[in-house]
Simulated scan of single mutants.
Amino acid sequence: MVNRHRVIIVDDEPLARDELGAMLNSQHLDFDVVAAVENTAKAWELMQEDESIEGLFLDIDIQTESKRAGLDFALNLNRLLVKPWVVFISGYSEYAVEAFQSFPVNYLVKPVDQGSLASVLQWIRIHSEDRPKKTGRINIRHRRQDAHGEFVYITEWVNHDEILYIQKNAGVGTVKIGLIDGEVLDGVNSTLKEWEALGFFQIHRRNLVNLAHVRREMPRVGENTVYKVGFKNSPLELDIGPDYLLLFRVELRKL
């Protein structure tokens, strides 16, 4: 079975969009052009609606937004937990050095020739299976104290099934991630909504859990209207918000 790659072309020049789309549709049939749009706002809207989009062919200088709109968009995409790959398509080479700070697959200068495009697409085909999926490995940047007591940020890959819960930190825009071995990754710059999109289930305004590790619900000690989640291989317990209890019970019955 052919592995198909769903992509978006983002370029404010209609001719450039049409030419690249024609090259992909005629000679690289395993790349499905979901849409060819003129700005990053429309690209983001499509990505929100269709989680199967794997990559972007992205212009940098988008006249209706800014001279570096594509570059800024790519840098913001790096904040996502599961990031699309990006191939920059630009009429200028001056942005190349800065563009590679967003870790794109490549940077192609217009007009794009068939040979350069074919090389880039072949690299994507070979490495596409290495990309983290929603049920696979997740790239997490978190805060840790070093040997000198200083806080530093490190990045590591964590398997989806290693995660027990995600909890929003009070008063700041970060979360902490509890792993099944008891380790806690703190200071992760992301939102609960991003983690919910990766398959974790919300049980409280501050808590998401990995349902695969949930053992049962139980009343808080001394009460019969407030409930907690108990886990299979951890003594940890987390509160269930009253607004989330009914849906949580429905999900438990499916397990």
Results as ranks from 00 to 15, higher is better:
176 K>R: 14
93 S>D: 14
159 N>V: 00
194 E>P: 10
192 L>C: 11
193 K>F: 08
171 G>R: 07
93 S>R: 09
15 L>V: 13
57 F>I: 02
221 V>D: 04
69 A>G: 08
19 E>N: 10
156 E>V: 00
234 S>Q: 04
222 G>F: 01
104 P>N: 06
105 V>Q: 10
139 N>Q: 13
184 V>D: 03
81 L>K: 06
232 K>E: 12
77 L>E: 10
251 E>Q: 15
237 E>M: 12
185 L>G: 04
246 L>G: 06
23 M>A: 08
135 T>S: 14
191 T>D: 12
91 G>C: 03
184 V>I: 14
6 R>G: 00
147 A>F: 11
215 R>L: 14
171 G>Q: 08
154 I>S: 06
189 N>F: 13
125 R>F: 07
8 I>Y: 07
66 S>I: 09
139 N>P: 01
60 I>Y: 06
180 I>W: 00
60 I>H: 02
65 E>K: 08
244 Y>F: 14
9 I>Y: 02
163 I>R: 04
65 E>I: 13
148 H>R: 15
204 H>P: 06
47 M>L: 15
22 A>G: 05
222 G>K: 02
253 R>A: 14
221 V>N: 03
84 P>L: 09
170 A>G: 02
187 G>V: 11
170 A>E: 14
185 L>I: 07
85 W>L: 02
106 N>G: 09
61 D>Q: 10
39 N>Y: 03
91 G>F: 01
44 W>I: 11
171 G>E: 07
17 R>A: 08
24 L>W: 04
168 K>F: 08
247 L>Y: 13
4 R>I: 11
44 W>H: 15
144 R>A: 15
174 T>A: 12
32 D>A: 01
182 G>S: 00
19 E>H: 04
184 V>P: 00
43 A>N: 10
218 M>R: 14
54 E>P: 00
9 I>E: 10
91 G>H: 00
159 N>C: 01
37 V>R: 05
4 R>P: 00
157 W>Q: 10
131 R>L: 14
205 R>M: 07
74 A>Q: 01
252 L>S: 07
33 V>A: 03
59 D>C: 04
134 K>I: 03
253 R>H: 11
71 L>P: 03
115 G>S: 12
25 N>D: 10
95 Y>L: 04
162 E>C: 01
88 F>D: 03
